[in-house]
Design a protein around this nucleic acid. Structure first.
Length: 478
RNA sequence: GCACCCAUCGUCUAGCCCGGCCUAGGACACUGCCUUUUCACGGCGGCGACUGGGGUUCGAAUCCCCAUGGGUGUACCA
């Protein structure tokens, strides 16, 4: 039997970080087992669902590189993949349930139900449906329906305990009486989540349901429905919840929780996935930095964590830096090029210059945008006001260095050079050492302060050959 | 309220199923040193946890019970 898993988001907003994690786990499991990963859109909440969110979520998934084998946009043999287009299936299956005595029409009004629920709560009873419409005669139902009376379809919850084995929770027991008869079809004919899920998972031949712990209690209702249909339930794996620093379920108010925000902040998708993967699952070799696409059969359901994980992006930033460093130079160049403002002189430089620049700076940054800041070291004519810089400028040796370098830069300029070479730089430094007899801190910091007006930065022999000579000239006169 | 789930460094976690190898390992963050005559990277250290109480056992982070804490659910939301 081939493994079939699915990610089933509701298009009521942008793709959430938690959703992305669930999608990834399903995707990873399908890949590990040589199975199929399906995307299904759960848009039964017509009030809140919007097509634009569906498109946005698919786009975010694509950005992450989590590609589905079947879905509303790519098709597949078990479609349609949008619940709003499966109305006839839910209806037909619901009729089956009524015919077999597992469900019934219920005419109770909302007010009536609310009143009973409040009473039950006040009397400290479980607010379950009292079964008023459970035993209506077929004639009565038919005539009331014919009269245009509104009705929902309610599922007859069996009075017994349910047990199932979860891949991460182990044996889970739902004692008898946890739920009363619950609605599966709304009055408007749209199915309710717990029912639609079962119909879809069963008809789409889903073999494994991998989702977050918040769905654990839903499993009971779903188990009941599978049983009523005579279907074997899929295997379940309820991973841990993603929570915020306040230990509450992660939501918008916790800050950047939607994937598109990370795209905007130029995070590397592979890094985001890497981090998310580790939030609730552990690598058998305890690796922290890896590409999830290389996991292969290493990924399994047995290494999920049971406890909820607090989402804290500090580690994500570190992982982003690790991924960035391992990217090919040309790739970094492309990404960085997208971020640097068009008017920046960077874009006018030669390809070789760009590559050398990226080589030097990539080890110092965690984000592509940090590159821009570092780039300033090559172009800025600003003067540092740090104590260390001021101290270096005040050494009596520094003016001598300045004087010498001024003439050297002038010579290079007159010779028509656009940049000085690393060799030039070495000659300068040898001269200052040998002829001017300046060494140690006075030598290096002195040259740095004269050449860059900064106290810190990457090695001079690397950055000076990358700095345009007219910038060096300007600086020397400051 | 009721039901279910969970509980190891500040955070992510390994170890737990199949008790001894755990004076509890790794990573982030913080921090010290080395390297670099600067910064960063890197390397080596430091700080830092088995929620509490009972039990079982020669021996418990690991097994059992209770307590406490936290979370989720309890909808014609998903």
């Amino acid at each position: 039997m081939t493994v079939r898993v699915r990610f089933a988001p509701s298009p009521t907003g942008y793709l959430h970080i938690g959703g992305a994690r669930t999608a990834m786990y399903n995707y990873l499991y399908a890949k590990a087992m040589g199975g199929k990963y399906i995307l299904r859109i759960e848009d039964t909440d017509t009030e809140r669902s919007e097509r634009k969110y569906e498109a946005a979520q698919i786009e975010d998934l694509k950005w992450l590189g989590i590609n589905h084998d079947e879905g509303p946009d790519v098709g597949g043999e078990y479609g349609p993949y949008r619940q709003s287009e499966r109305g006839h299936i839910y209806k037909a299956w619901a009729e089956k349930l009524i015919d077999t005595g597992h469900a019934y029409h219920c005419f109770c009004s909302e007010e009536e139900l609310t009143a009973k629920k409040e009473l039950a709560t006040a009397e400290k009873r479980a607010p379950h449906y009292d079964g008023k419409c459970r035993n209506l005669t077929e004639e009565e139902v038919t005539s009331r329906l014919a009269a245009g009376e509104e009705a929902v379809i309610r599922f007859k919850a069996p009075r017994k305990a349910y047990v199932f084995t979860d891949h991460v929770r182990g044996r889970v027991v739902f004692p008898e009486g946890m739920v009363g008869d619950f609605v599966i079809m709304r009055a408007n004919g749209i199915p309710v989540y717990n029912y639609a899920v079962v119909v879809d998972d069963a008809s789409m031949k889903i073999t494994h349901v991998i989702r977050a712990e918040e769905h654990l209690p839903n499993t009971l209702r779903q188990l009941m429905i599978y049983e009523a249909f005579g279907e074997t339930p899929p295997e379940f794996a309820h991973g841990s919840l993603l929570i915020g620093e306040d230990r509450q379920k992660l939501s918008k108010r916790h800050g950047a929780t939607s994937v598109n925000l990370y795209k905007e902040m130029n995070y590397i998708p592979a890094a985001l996935l890497n981090y998310l993967c580790l939030l609730g699952w552990s690598h058998p070799e305890e690796k922290d930095v890896f590409d999830i696409h290389t996991l292969g059969t290493i990924f399994n359901l047995e290494r999920f964590t049971k406890a909820a994980a607090i989402y804290d992006i500090k580690k994500l930033d570190f992982i982003n830096g690790q991924h960035l460093r391992h990217l090919p130079l040309e790739t970094i160049l492309i990404e960085v090029g997208k971020i640097i403002p068009v008017e920046h002189p960077f874009h006018k430089m030669e390809h070789d210059w760009k590559l050398r620049t990226v080589t030097i700076f990539k080890d110092q940054i965690n984000f592509f945008q940090d590159f821009t800041t570092h780039l300033d070291i090559l172009f800025t004519t600003e003067v540092s006001d740090s104590a260390e810089y001021l101290e270096a400028r005040n050494w009596e040796t520094t003016p001598k260095i300045r004087e010498y370098l001024e003439s050297e830069i002038n010579i290079a300029k007159v010779a028509g050079k656009k940049f000085v070479t690393a060799d030039d730089y070495n000659i300068w430094s040898d001269h200052v050492k040998g002829e001017l007899k300046i060494k140690g801190k006075q030598l290096f910091m002195g040259m740095r302060s004269v050449l860059t007006h900064q106290a810190h930065g990457p090695e001079l022999k690397f950055i000076i050959p990358l700095t345009p000579i007219e910038i060096l000239e300007k600086r020397i006169h400051l």
